[in-house]
Design a binder for these strands. Structure first.
Lengths: 220, 220
DNA sequence: ACAAATATTTAGTTTTGTCTAAAAATTTAT
DNA sequence: ATAAATTTTTAGACAAAACTAAATATTTGT
């Protein structure tokens, strides 16, 4: 697959939320910042290669081959994101552009070794799941820390209350979006929570927990 | 610069040994496995962009801008090679193809951080020097271990005597091409050498040392 | 149901990087 | 010094991936 074909397949995957919905020419054009006529041309080409089902005027769907290709690209993208954040110390919101380039590198051995080197991570720094080599993955959902059971583990992805006081608290305790957080215990008495973040254990109040969003894998 | 332009600049740099010699159209075509007519087209384009001096029928030379571009690409290529060998455990002879792809990734921040993460290496796993950010580097030369003074450090790049016995010795002592070797001491009495390799100190006979080639940076 | 609005495709160009075949310049050999 | 051999360039084409403008389908609103 060419670089451009890979970008189209990825866009179709994201717009169609996997393979659920047919995707319109215009939506692809908008997503990829290109013209609908260019999209039509490419859809014909992808259809030739059996990566998509394409019916004129009726939108496009990935074939199984196309779906697996998309997942392979997404896998690479997200593994590289983990590398950039965990190893090279990028911030979680700086990695996308570089990962967009790295995802196109072609070497199965490279990805296998990278995966192992990173400790076979299951989610990227945005909390999104990393498909396995054969295209399997769990969906992820966004939940407040307080809504989750003991033992849950997820990635900090957002705040409910962006007051200066709350953001200062996070900063002071060295908590950043993109960090992995595990819920160790809950105190019935006051609803306070014992957590592990960046390897360090600490206790947070219910109020803090109800303002912090975690992206967690759905237990299917 | 496009991917293709980068490949041409790199080829011209290698064929011209830096900026010493003018490079012929045919030699570029041969090196890049393409046709001379294609090369002529590209040379015009690179000349337009002031990356090369090009005189019809007279060959081509890099400009200073072109030279710095070439060194930037070579820097990226060699840093990625170090990453693949040191961190992902590739063998030194498996890395070239992947590094050819990775060298085209565009992100200054990525390369700066990768360089720091790898410990600012000065040579790649083939013993070739890694240019600094501003394009400076020392030349490297191939020498037998026994020809080098105490304190020398280099990369194992070849053997003089490829007898089964010698190769078995290397294997048994866990010495591979691509490893960094440092000469700690020399024994006047029997010419034996004390070395450090893969962090481990050991002693080798003069015979072993005179069969093992190291690539070392020229001191000047 | 039909006209208007919107979405999609077709047709014809453009750019980038390649190619082949032929022409022109340079180098080599006698 | 000049013919032959070699190298290099030019001219014209092609494929990929994009674009514009025009044509055609589909959907929407009354």
């Amino acid at each position: 697959m060419t670089l451009s074909e890979e970008d189209y397949i990825k866009a179709i995957y994201h717009l169609g939320k996997g393979m659920e919905q047919a995707v319109s020419t215009n939506s692809i054009a908008e997503q990829m910042d290109t013209k609908p006529s260019s999209v039509t041309d490419m859809l014909k080409k992808l259809s030739e290669k059996d990566l998509v089902f394409y019916k004129k005027y009726k939108g496009v769907l990935l074939t199984e081959t196309g779906r697996l290709s998309a997942l392979s690209i997404i896998r690479k993208h997200r593994l590289w994101e983990v590398f950039l954040v965990d190893k090279l110390d990028f911030a979680w919101d700086e990695v996308h552009e570089v990962a967009e380039q790295l995802e196109h590198i072609k070497s199965e051995k490279l990805i296998d070794k990278l995966d192992a080197y990173l400790g076979n991570p299951k989610v990227d720094p945005h909390g999104d799941p990393i498909p396995s080599k054969d295209g399997e993955f769990k969906k992820s959902v966004k939940r407040l820390v307080t809504e989750l059971p003991i033992g849950s583990q997820g990635i900090c992805v957002g705040v409910n209350d962006s007051s200066v006081a709350f953001l200062k608290f996070l900063d002071k305790n060295n908590i950043s979006l993109g960090d992995t957080l595990e819920i160790l215990d809950k105190e019935d008495f006051d609803g306070s929570l014992s957590i592990r973040i960046k390897g360090k254990e600490m206790r947070i109040s219910e109020q803090i927990g109800s303002n912090l969003f975690l992206e967690v894998l759905e237990k299917d």
